[in-house]
């Protein structure tokens, strides 16, 4: 029997950061559906080792994340494995929204909207001031649908997630999880209406 260690609601648009020890199991629940949960990982003992989207894609020879995907670090080691996934697939090439990229993607006047980068930086600096923007790299977007096409295209599409869909991961080493429950209002990833996400942590 596994023991529930922690259960928290991450409100729409909020940052979150926590430690997950080796062997522990984490579940993220898309409570109302169509949410984008921007997520990044660090080796808790050596944060210079971090999640690497391209090493994850290269190792599994596939751009989408789902059950069985090993989340690989920049040192080519497995940080966590996705062990359950009722959504079906998740993105790791779309990155996180930021005020700067919002001006490029939408309009200069979107600069002052809340963003995942703001969440990431606030959570990181509150955790440990040794962190900076240099520690960030392309993240995972759980529950987000970013299809790539055979002719080289990429687009942000309507979500394939739904209320109550979840993804579960087991940690292979002690890691830090960094989350921004995406506040983006300019594209369909959050259904134009960001909603809460549930974080659950078990000892096994």
């Amino acid at each position: 029997m596994s023991t529930l260690l922690r259960q928290e609601t991450i409100r729409a648009g909020d940052p979150f950061m926590a430690r997950i020890n080796a062997g522990q199991r984490v579940r993220l629940v898309d409570t109302e559906g169509n949410e984008a949960v921007d997520t990044f990982f660090f080796n808790a003992e050596d944060p210079r080792e971090r999640y690497s989207a391209v090493d994850t894609v290269r190792r599994q020879r596939n751009v989408y994340l789902t059950t069985g995907t090993e989340l690989v670090s920049n040192e080519d080691r497995t940080l966590l494995t996705i062990v359950d996934d009722t959504c079906g697939r998740h993105d790791t090439l779309g990155g996180a929204c930021a005020s700067e990229s919002n001006t490029v993607r939408y309009a200069h006047d979107r600069k002052f909207m809340h963003s995942c980068r703001d969440n990431f930086l606030l959570a990181l600096l509150n955790w440990n001031e040794d962190f900076s923007k240099r520690d960030l790299g392309p993240n995972i977007n759980f529950f987000m649908n970013v299809p790539l096409s055979a002719d080289g295209g990429l687009r942000f599409a309507d979500g394939i997630s739904g209320p109550g869909k979840y993804v579960e991961l087991v940690a292979h080493m002690d890691v830090l999880i960094l989350i921004s429950n995406c506040p983006q209002l300019n594209n369909p990833c959050s259904g134009f209406n960001p909603t809460p996400v549930e974080f659950l942590l078990w000892d096994a």
Binding site: V54, G94, G95, S101, T103, P138, L154
Partner: peptide, 30 residues
Amino acid sequence: SERYNMADTLKAQHTHKLALGNVLYSDMGR
């Protein structure tokens, strides 16, 4: 600290390849 950003490059130009006419974006929208 401003550097090439794969994800911002891809999503701004709706592409996963680079070719004539594309730019390599930094993480700061430039």
